[in-house]
Design a protein around this nucleic acid. Structure first.
Lengths: 152, 152
DNA sequence: TATTGTTATACTCTATAACTATA
DNA sequence: TATAGTTATAGAGTATAACAATA
């Protein structure tokens, strides 16, 4: 009896994740992007990132990332720039088109989530955000990995 | 200034979704399942489901589902059962192995999320769960679609 | 005619293994 | 030797269009 709410809690987390993913997929499609391309663009908005760092952020093998970057490059969304310090390495940068689409997709995603949370009182949003912050911090503590500090 | 918390709120939702997805992918892999197969098994735990209903639950085209069920069938996880009322239709059922793996994956997922939420006080869990419930209900209201009522 | 599901085809995504080039 | 990245290959996932069978 007293354990039932615990079950509901994890179920709620899973359903929320599915819903957010669903919205993300829809937003990507509306902007003629695959979800993976949209995620890549979002990661690059704050500036160029190296391949190795991207594999960690996206949890991909390096060869998978090569293909993803190839296809995104062929669509004119990103480009490779040789690293001046290490001639083996390269950094992935957004093209102007990639920057435009990435920003539009990010904004659309924010709008959609705002609408979904529309009925939620302001205090609850704060609580929700800080509770999620705790969960993310717990994960970071457990794995040592951070979840891409994109700052403010 | 006063708008900053709003941005943080949607960011928190997206990051939480990514984290839950990441955990789900890991759990699936640990059980030698693709994430899509794991999701399929979880959907079938409560009983057989028809193809058309599955396409709605998984947001897939029918041909995509045919392939998914084919591969899951080849691995001995599910089977097709002709519908006795409508000879065009079939229902997808879990094999004993599919049932076993589905239950194990579901339990593992619950455990992992419990650990992640370990530091979260009980009252916050309740708030989080009910806030999420509100968001899911809002989505249902907007789209008319329900999020698979698996009951208690 | 409409619905249920499959087949054919093409593309994206992903991993493993072997490779090149630089450090 | 170790690291950064690519290539080759194979399989999973997905969508569109055309199809078969049943309703």
């Amino acid at each position: 009896m007293t354990k039932e709410p615990l079950l509901r809690f994890t179920e709620a987390l899973v359903r929320l994740a599915h819903l957010v993913q669903e919205v993300f997929d829809e937003v990507a499609k509306e902007h003629d992007l695959t979800p993976q391309q949209a995620q890549l663009l979002c990661l690059l908005i704050d500036g160029p990132v190296g391949m190795t760092e991207l594999t960690r952020a996206l949890h991909l093998e390096k060869s998978s990332l090569t293909g993803l970057v190839d296809r995104a490059g062929k669509r004119g969304l990103v480009a490779r720039v040789r690293d001046s310090n290490d001639r083996r390495a390269c950094r992935i940068v957004l093209t102007r088109e990639g920057e435009r689409l990435g920003a539009m997709a990010h904004d659309a995603m924010t709008d959609r989530l705002e609408v979904l949370a529309g009925k939620l009182p302001q205090e609850h949003r704060g609580l929700l955000a800080s509770a999620i912050g705790g969960i993310l911090a717990e994960h970071t503590a457990q794995t040592g990995r951070a979840w891409n500090a994109s700052g403010s």
